[in-house]
């Protein structure tokens, strides 16, 4: 995990491949490019309590039941530790740093960590693989800043423990919202799922389990307008979007799972993005709008968004990069 301090390892080396991001996509790209002898350098990001962190979104989950090869399931952080070990086994050079700027206007591409205004990039790569993933969306209300870590949480696995025998809520209606809600019923007295629509986006198996869980209940057609409390969560202001009726519910914990946004800020203006911010890749490939830049995983996938599809697309990006480098005579 140790990283060289910024600046001390800056040199004129140009790597064949630099990979940005270390979820299932980035680490699979690393395994493949390392085995192809392309000596990949992987900038894995820095720890954070959002999903934008080394290991990606699975670092904040508990049991992963649908990753093939693990018939009894596996813990998300454990799975990602294995991915990382496998990438290191073949010589991936992993840096625990966060990319602050990229320059894709000429090759080799420039990648900065630390000061984005530094005249020279920290790393340079003939090819770049973008696997920066997506991060959790927040509610976007004032109270969030005040109460994050004080009853408001984005990580059920980290913080569920502190809500033993309390009445709490989860905001959202997808698989991750239901997974969190069900995990939280191990601790809480009751868990209410607040969802802005009348039906869930979650998969059928998750819905069946959720409806069978007697500690779980649902508030349909409802959104959170505000969270009450100065130093800790004391209540949640919920608005019914059909009737407009506003009520304050006495929940003492709020877990937010309303979806994700792609981590594409670094590439805005340099790579073509969809209207929703996701990177555009050419059909059936990992090629972006800039030759030599490949993208994989959730940063370019607003449809499947699974660990296994991310890993699959990471493999595609590695092979695309390898063949492109070969054609360039590298």
């Amino acid at each position: 995990m140790s990283a060289e301090p910024n600046g001390t390892d800056r040199n004129d080396d140009v790597r064949p491949v630099v990979i940005v991001g270390s979820g299932p996509a980035g680490l699979t790209a690393a395994i493949y490019t390392a085995r192809a002898n392309l000596q990949p350098l992987l900038v894995e990001g820095e720890p954070s309590s959002t999903s934008d962190q080394p290991g990606g979104q699975l670092m904040l989950t508990t049991e992963v039941e649908n990753f093939p090869g693990f018939p009894d399931g596996i813990m998300g952080p454990e799975l990602m530790a294995s991915f990382r070990q496998q990438a290191m086994r073949f010589g991936t050079d992993i840096r625990t740093e966060k990319v602050t700027r990229v320059d894709l206007s000429s090759r080799p591409f420039g990648v900065w960590v630390g000061d984005p205004e530094a005249p020279e990039p920290t790393y340079r790569g003939q090819a770049l693989i973008v696997a920066t993933g997506a991060s959790s969306l927040m509610l976007g209300i004032e109270a969030e800043r005040r109460l994050l870590g004080h009853g408001l949480s984005t990580c059920a696995t980290c913080d569920g423990f502190f809500f033993r025998d309390q009445d709490i809520c989860v905001v959202g209606g997808g698989d991750s919202a239901l997974e969190e809600a069900m995990f939280l019923t191990r601790f809480a007295r009751s868990v209410t799922v607040i969802h802005r629509r009348k039906e869930l986006r979650a998969s059928k198996i998750m819905q069946d389990r959720a409806f069978a869980n007697e500690k779980l209940s649902f508030l349909w057609d409802s959104v959170v307008d505000d969270i009450v409390g100065e130093t800790t969560v004391e209540g949640v202001v919920v608005r019914d979007v059909q009737t407009g009726e506003v009520t304050t519910k006495p929940y003492t914990g709020v877990f937010v799972a309303i979806g994700h946004r792609p981590n594409t800020d670094l590439f805005r203006g340099q790579l073509d993005l969809k209207d929703n911010g996701y990177l555009i890749t050419a059909a059936d490939t990992s090629r972006t709008s800039v030759e030599g830049v490949f993208a994989c995983g959730d940063v370019q996938d607003d449809w499947y968004r699974q660990a296994i599809t991310a890993a699959g697309s990471g493999c595609m990006a590695a092979i695309d990069a390898e063949r492109w480098l070969e054609a360039q005579g590298h």
Partner: peptide, 29 residues
């Protein structure tokens, strides 16, 4: 110490709480 989220790092100076850092961060931060 009202810890409701981990990791939480509390800096104690002369035995009392002086600063609180909630959530994981990179080394520079």
């Amino acid at each position: 110490f009202n810890v409701m989220s981990i990791p939480t790092m509390i800096v104690f100076k002369d035995g009392s709480e002086d600063q609180r850092i909630v959530g994981a961060k990179g080394k520079p931060q």
